[in-house]
Design a protein around this nucleic acid. Structure first.
Lengths: 200, 200
DNA sequence: TCGTTCATGTAACGCGTTACATGATTGC
DNA sequence: GCAATCATGTAACGCGTTACATGAACGA
């Protein structure tokens, strides 16, 4: 069955979709370009690429550097393998993009989801953002409850740690609120335009 | 060799040190009391307890609930196992506490370290805080560099994600600055007192 | 008595890393 | 020629989770 839910699969599909790449470069992009992804090692990346090829979502293409203008592969100028997204792979990626279940709200997953928001419908975006927000609010509630229960018994450092932790979560909630608000505004503005914009 | 570096071991030793406990309660404390620890499952906790006993750091004690006043175990009123820290366990914990190497600065580890700061010398505290800070500053530098390189090519969402990520890190750096500053002040005040406080 | 929570454990698996092995290409 | 870095891969292991199994104690 190979649940293969992983963040890696998602990120790889999304990155390769933007432009074909070989593994080594893919890894750099995971670290830097999309700043928030964690640094996966080759030990995870290459096996993952293999299975994605097996699934038929990626296709291997031997050949020169895709970003390299001096075309003419004089003989077989490199053992590079360039991966590109197949039609099925694109479908798969879109399927992953459209999922708005609880998985999409977890810390790791959410980061990737957000990074690919540009390729998503506003509906999905709002659902993911709102899901994430309510998840964080649940977490906040628990933290507050636990703090109320244990406040007096804890030393200054533990307390400070909890305080800072809570503040971080609260801060992310505010961030989400802004994002949701701006999505809403955009949507409303668009609706108005579509209806003929009679009110001004 | 069983490197057993894990956060779990550290947290368990620290919690059991405060007061003997059985596994089930230990787990609740990992989730809530020390708010920041992640929620370990029993599947990790119980095996961990076992190995800690094997190492001689914890001792099992059958018997009633430690926080239960009605002593008299009528027959053998429960299959509970209460764990307490042995002398070697205390030594081990102190050894872990005194480590100021790079491990102590990693995200997960740092949280636990901080939670037990109350049991640490100011020297160690400052080293850990400063280590953590410089690690975050390295990270910031990388993020800034990467953003400078890729700014134009990225869509609004990716950019926003990076911006928010950077702001989070910057915020933690400010937090650390305050903590370090207050540690420094306390130290200076103490030094002054010890020297006779001639200047006023 | 019957469901819930307390309490302990294990086996299979997921997902990733580390350390290792290999070799081509580039720049000095 | 030689070092650095680009580039691809694998085997062993670490560390944790899920799902399962078991049973005592408690409250309605």
């Amino acid at each position: 069955m190979s649940r293969r839910s992983g963040v890696l699969e998602f990120a790889v599909l999304g990155l390769v979709r933007e432009s074909p790449m070989h593994g080594y470069e893919l890894r750099k992009r995971l670290n830097t370009s999309l700043g928030v992804f964690r640094a996966f090692s080759y030990g995870s990346l290459y096996p993952c690429l293999k299975t994605l090829v097996q699934q038929g979502w990626l296709a291997e293409e031997p050949g020169g550097d895709p970003g390299d203008p001096r075309g003419t592969p004089l003989s077989n100028r490199r053992a590079k393998i360039v991966y590109r997204l197949t039609a099925e792979g694109k479908e798969r990626f879109e399927e992953l993009l459209s999922q708005t279940g609880p998985d999409a709200w977890e810390d790791e997953h959410f980061g990737v989801r957000f990074a690919f928001f540009g390729q998503t419908s506003r509906d999905v975006r709002m659902r993911v953002l709102e899901g994430r927000r309510s998840r964080l609010e649940e977490r906040l509630a628990k933290m507050r409850a636990s703090m109320a229960r244990t406040r007096e018994k804890l030393d200054a450092y533990t307390l400070e740690l909890q305080r800072h932790g809570m503040e971080s979560v609260e801060r992310e909630v505010r961030w989400l609120n802004e994002l949701i608000e701006s999505e809403r505004e955009e949507r409303d503005r668009r609706d108005q335009r579509d209806r003929g914009d009679t009110t001004t």
